[in-house]
Simulated assay, not measured.
Amino acid sequence: MSDVLDLVREDLRQFAGYASARRSGLTGSVWLNANESPWPSPADGGLGLNRYPDPQPAALHAELAALYAVDEERVLISRGSDEAIDLLVRALCRAGRDAVVLAPPTFGMYAVCARLQDARRIEVPLIDTADGWALDIDAVIASARDGGARIVFLCSPNNPTGEVVPREAIERAAVALADQAVVVVDEAYGEFAAQASAATLLPRHPNLAVLRTLSKAHALAGARIGALLADPALIRVLRNVAAPYPLPSPSVRAALAALQPATLDETRRRIACVIAERQRVFAALSALPGVRRCYPSQGNFLLVRFVEAELAFRRLLAAGVVVRDMRGYPGLGDALRISIGTVQDNDTLLAALGAGRAPA
């Protein structure tokens, strides 16, 4: 494959997008070019919210590139992963003509964004094996080829099932679909996994893209800061498709603070705690007589099948524990997804299910 732009909608390849006041690159001390209020709001609190934010703040751009070990030109900052998923579908899929490949059960936003763009959804279900869930990458490649897919979404670790897609499989899909589709690897839970990021494969595969987020391991779900890592040509297209001012200034400040060395050290300690607790809760749940199966996971959650899922769900709610009900998903009619909390949170969960003492 010579140019990832060949996979972009033809009508968007030269699309310049909206030329917002902040994209002009002008500098000065008296700002009269954006019809902003010259005074901060009385409720501003020193945040300077009367001014529009930079669409792609340079300082945060540099910090995210360093965090994910990629060149800055490969980074697009987005409002969480959700916006990046939507931008990819809109930029790559022609409405009513192109398709995306999904491997359910998986993150629901892939299908939502495809439907909003009127892109066909081709499903290659995961396989429930004795060792856990598995992806048939050969079936994914064949379905993408036969169905005219422009995007293949691979969630790794997968939400809600917890398994990773092997790097060899990711690279095989990128090679096989080089002239047809962009392979998007969603690594929202990548910090909790043992496998290295697929971002290291980007220089070899222009049709590969990786989604990352500060929502999970970095504890900034409310700030809505994500990143798409991809070929620079694709990044430039998506910047032109994106909203003029997608990143609120307070969110950018929070993200910059979260990426300082001392904060990153604490984040790494918390990740280690989550992984240890994941193993403890997995063992405890697996031993419960009311649990059909607890799946191994490389995310910060566990997918659990119950003999009586409704009873388990009600017992947890009665104890004040809210988990994700997965029973509406095909093939998961007896399943709940349980996020890993603090030690005390997890003790409360296990006690409610009869697997331990309530915390003091």
Rank of each mutant, 00 (worst) to 15 (best):
G96M: 03
N35E: 15
N33R: 14
R327A: 12
D82S: 14
V343C: 10
P261M: 09
G25C: 06
L349N: 08
R337S: 14
A84W: 00
A199D: 07
P40S: 13
V30A: 08
R293K: 13
D231H: 15
A84Y: 05
Q260H: 04
I151P: 00
D325F: 04
I137G: 00
M326Y: 12
N300F: 04
S20F: 10
L220W: 01
P166L: 13
V304A: 03
Y52L: 15
Q56L: 11
V140R: 00
C93P: 02
I340G: 07
L64W: 06
D136F: 01
L256W: 02
S81R: 03
T200A: 15
A95I: 11
D345K: 06
L88R: 09
Q14Y: 13
A139I: 06
I170M: 13
Q195L: 11
A272P: 03
R90S: 10
R305L: 11
S143E: 07
N240Q: 14
A119Q: 00
S2R: 11
V241W: 03
V210K: 06
L102M: 14
A119V: 02
N159Q: 12
S197N: 08
S2W: 06
A254T: 02
M326W: 04
G28F: 07
L220N: 09
A254G: 05
A21N: 08
S215R: 09
D86V: 05
D118P: 00
A219D: 11
